[in-house]
Design a protein around this nucleic acid. Structure first.
Lengths: 348, 348
DNA sequence: TTGAAAGCGCTAACAT
DNA sequence: ATGTTAGCGCTTTCAA
């Protein structure tokens, strides 16, 4: 690679002049020399060495992004949002992927091993002099990892820290579930079954709360007999369809699209037509929603926006040159979008 | 951030000694000093500045990964494979995402604008002193972009360059389609319909060739009446189901899982049971294959392996210190895996 | 308008 | 066993 020195030698000026000219300092050299410097730089395919530049300037214009697992379906879209925002602000991303799924055989309990890997990644980022770090979870949850003695802005996306001393960006499950339930109520559904994720899952709990609030507003008593729990998978939906149908629900709110997939399957077997005999709502708005017959109504988390917002927070903190206050570290909850498709119908 | 200088000052030795000790040069200092250096480094939370280190050593231990679009379904898994291999070799990834889809409204013809963006990305990577670059396409195809005057190893993954002067890694569509067809033939299907992607698409053409070869081996004449073309989407599958069924096919080979999705939909409407009345094979092995009723048989491209292989090629070239020969630049075609699920059945 | 020189943090050849 | 020194490529005072 050609260096400023090479150019300086050829043109017969000092490296300082070359640097100044190339960086657009007007009047750094006479017009003739200026042009020559550009020409030589061009012909040598000169590219400033960003390592040297950053080292000198003590500024890298880069932020680190640590993903728990890049291959988990929502992650790339969040990273994309971060990337987009960074590009607009002339920053670059250093990406590190923990590969939690493959590395630990899907064991996601936060073990010391995880903590160690986490520390390593942070350490690496610090070594690269990133000006901020965004930690992208694979799924909305509380993570126990805290960056130890880090002196750069740190933001959690799609997850939140045990202690609220760092910012985090999530989406509002309660409001989304409230909206969905209200929508179903408006369509005259009075008996709305729920197939939730695990009972202890915080996300599931928030969604349930939104569901309850909507019912409450309409003075419909909460009936726990038509609320089922299980994993986030198809199997769960499949298993609980019968009891909900038997209980006489006219609509089912599945807390994930995969769960909804199980409902489709079971209904097909039972000869029940979704969108006619029973209404169905999912959650996540995965690609395949449009692929179901009929297409599945669903809740779309604002993934791209979460990415952008996280980046925005990081930049704000970079500019402020100080850690955010406790108050500023309250998780930011963005709103989801509700997609109404043929899987739901109005009664009457 | 603490530096070697800080440590040196506190311990009362030279920076050289600190550096040597910290880098494990045994006997670089007496046991007492050695221990003290480590202690001080620890207490200062010292992290060597990798910019300075790389600059000095003229070696970054990093390779660049340029994705056409990180959010396109197959991309993350490929990147994951690259990442995995790099980690094993103590290299790191610098990721840059072109965001082709969002940036250009899904216009994927290789325009001058694309070329310009491509050059910018390469240029950026070069500035960061990456030791090699992997370009990850969003879909198997020929790309016209060539890295101009790059002096580091360059490998195309999931796409291949116009001129074969760089390595590329893809998967073998012909062999995969051959295997699928052969499998269906073995199950006594004689009349196997095809719903292909666009007629001019190179991938579609290779798959069709595999299909034809398998038929040819069994002396079954190729019947173009039962081969349909269209987009890679559900609509295409939906539209062509009737004519294939009417033509009396007992099995349908859809060249993408999304196309297969359309077949499911139409069959559901017609009261035809897939996996019983008609067998169905897809391609891509998307997550949702297991979600269809019955689960869709499909072809899984070796994404992770493609990533690993690309990285391997880069490392080989880095070690060789020279550009690969033309012969070495023949595209590497990895084999896909065939997943047989309940969507196909044996006749008799 | 131009350049000399210092220095970012680190390492490595070469003293001592 | 430990230190001196030079230098990676760049920017940036400060001086001429």
């Amino acid at each position: 690679m050609a260096t400023v020195k090479d150019i300086a030698k050829i043109v017969g000026v000092s490296t300082a002049t070359v640097s100044n000219v190339l960086n657009g300092r007007i009047g750094a050299a006479g017009p003739a020399k200026t042009r020559e410097i550009f020409e030589v730089a061009e012909s040598l395919h000169y590219r400033p060495n960003s390592l040297a530049k950053s080292l000198k300037q003590q500024k890298t214009n880069s932020i680190g992004v640590i993903t728990e697992d890049l291959t988990v379906f929502n992650t790339p879209e969040i990273v994309d949002g971060i990337d987009e925002y960074c590009e607009e602000n002339n920053y670059e991303i250093i990406l590190a992927n923990m590969r939690l799924f493959k590395r630990y055989n899907n064991d996601f309990t936060d073990t010391p091993k995880h903590q160690q890997l986490f520390n390593m990644m942070i350490s690496n980022m610090a070594a690269k002099q990133v000006e901020g770090i965004i930690y992208v979870g694979y799924h909305s949850r509380e993570v126990t990892y805290l960056p130890s003695r880090i002196n750069v802005p740190f933001v959690y996306a799609y997850c939140y820290p045990k202690e609220q001393i760092y910012s985090s960006v999530l989406f509002n499950d309660e409001v989304a579930a409230y909206k969905v339930t209200k929508l179903l109520l408006k369509k005259k559904h009075k008996k709305i079954g729920v197939i939730s994720g695990p009972r202890l899952n915080i996300t599931a709990q928030w969604r349930l709360r939104g569901y309850q609030r909507a019912l409450h507003e309409q003075n419909i008593p909460y009936n726990e007999m038509i609320v089922c729990y299980g994993e986030w998978d198809r199997e769960n939906g499949y298993r609980h369809t019968d009891e909900l149908i038997d209980a006489g629900v006219t609509a089912i709110f599945a807390f994930s699209d995969r769960i909804a997939g199980g409902v489709y399957k079971r209904c097909l077997e039972k000869g029940i037509t979704i969108g006619k005999d029973v209404s169905l709502f999912g959650y996540d708005n995965i690609d395949w929603c449009e692929g179901y017959t009929p297409p599945l109504s669903s809740v779309a988390p604002p993934l791209n926006e979460m990415g952008r917002k996280s980046a925005e927070l990081v930049f704000t903190q970079i500019k402020q040159q100080k850690m955010p206050s406790m108050a500023e570290c309250k998780p930011i909850l963005l709103n989801c979008e509700i997609y109404e498709r043929a899987s739901i119908t109005s009664l009457l």
